[in-house]
């Protein structure tokens, strides 16, 4: 099957996954978005951008494929990174957006926190749960980035091949029925493993909580004042005290909508006006009642006419 050499700037790389069946992975050199600052995550020049990677592909399998082009530093699947908000229609922008969010979209604070942690005195060690090698099944047509160690590897990876290469079968991670059984087992670790994990986690958690408390700028009962000198007004906590500072007066309504109830005064005014006091009011009311009666009548009539038109009233 002769296929075009380039598709929207992508090189289609054919792979045969089973005899006679070809799967296409589209590859392109990674281009850093113009407006964003230089990406640290995916260095330009030596990052390969892949589209339509098989859903069950593993990092090991992809490494296997591009090993021949040069040493690979890292393989990352985009669906594991924080996803994009809403993909736009234009593909160029789409890709940019992925990178954008990845770049300046706030890297989880957790990471930063972890960095702090390293500096802190003796953080407790987290004992992870046992995790055997399990394939992660991602959505079809996923994209991935392959980062080579060397700039020269990139052009080699982008050479279009006419003959489909075989997709390496990773035996490390089971697939099919075996995948499900090992997934089942891995989700149910032994009880003592759960206990040690939980204990170590809680230790770490408490350590971090304590540190956060120390670091917090605001003490209980202290007002939060911003640069302009305004005091932040917040709602009180469960016992009438705002945790972490603030002056406690705001109502829940104000908190959620940012507006105070302004209806109160107007409503009182409304009730003062008497209905049915003057003769003309009575007459008008009577008239409008009759009009309403008629309107209802006409509208039901219309409805019934409509039903009639749809031959609804032939019982058989």
């Amino acid at each position: 099957m002769p296929s075009p050499a380039l598709i929207s700037g992508f090189t289609p790389l054919p792979f045969s996954i089973s005899p006679g069946v070809v799967h296409y992975v589209y590859a392109r050199a990674h281009e850093a978005p113009k407006k964003a600052k230089q990406s640290q995550q995916w260095p330009a020049g030596r990052t390969l951008f892949l589209v339509n990677v098989p859903p069950d592909a593993t990092e090991r399998e992809i490494t296997e494929i591009f090993k021949s082009c040069g040493t690979i530093e890292r393989v990352s699947f985009d669906s594991d990174a924080p996803p994009v908000e809403e993909p736009d229609s234009s593909d160029e922008e789409e890709e940019e957006e992925i990178e954008e969010t990845a770049v300046d979209g706030e890297e989880p604070q957790r990471k930063r926190r972890r960095k702090d942690k390293t500096k802190a005195p003796r953080p407790p060690q987290l004992i992870p749960l046992p995790s055997p090698a399990i394939r992660k099944l991602r959505r079809t047509s996923q994209s991935a980035h392959v980062i080579f160690l060397d700039d020269s590897s990139l052009p080699r990876a982008l050479v279009p091949s006419s003959k489909p290469r075989a997709w390496p079968a990773g035996d490390e991670e089971p697939s099919g029925l075996a995948h499900y059984t090992s997934l089942y087992t891995s989700l149910r670790p032994p009880l003592d493993a759960v206990r040690t994990h939980a204990d170590s986690f809680m230790e770490l958690f408490e350590f971090e909580q304590a540190k956060l408390k120390q670091k917090s700028r605001y003490k209980k009962g202290e007002a939060v004042v911003d640069e302009d000198g305004f005091t932040l007004v917040t709602r009180g906590g469960a016992y009438g005290q705002a945790v972490g500072g603030g002056v406690t007066v705001a109502s829940k309504r104000f908190q959620s909508r940012g507006e105070t109830r302004s209806m109160g005064r107007n409503r009182k005014k409304d009730t003062k006006e008497k209905a049915n006091f003057y003769a003309f009011q009575k007459a008008e009311k009577q008239r409008s009642d009759l009009m309403k009666l008629r309107r209802d009548w006409e509208s039901t009539k219309e409805q019934v006419e409509k039903l009639k038109a749809s031959r609804k009233f032939k019982p058989y």
Binding site: S8, H23, T140, S141
Partner: peptide
């Protein structure tokens, strides 16, 4: 259909 990065399906280039 025309190629999109996030097409969301496994595609093959159309024969010429």
């Amino acid at each position: 259909r025309s190629f999109k990065v996030l097409g969301g399906f496994s595609s093959a280039p159309c024969p010429v």
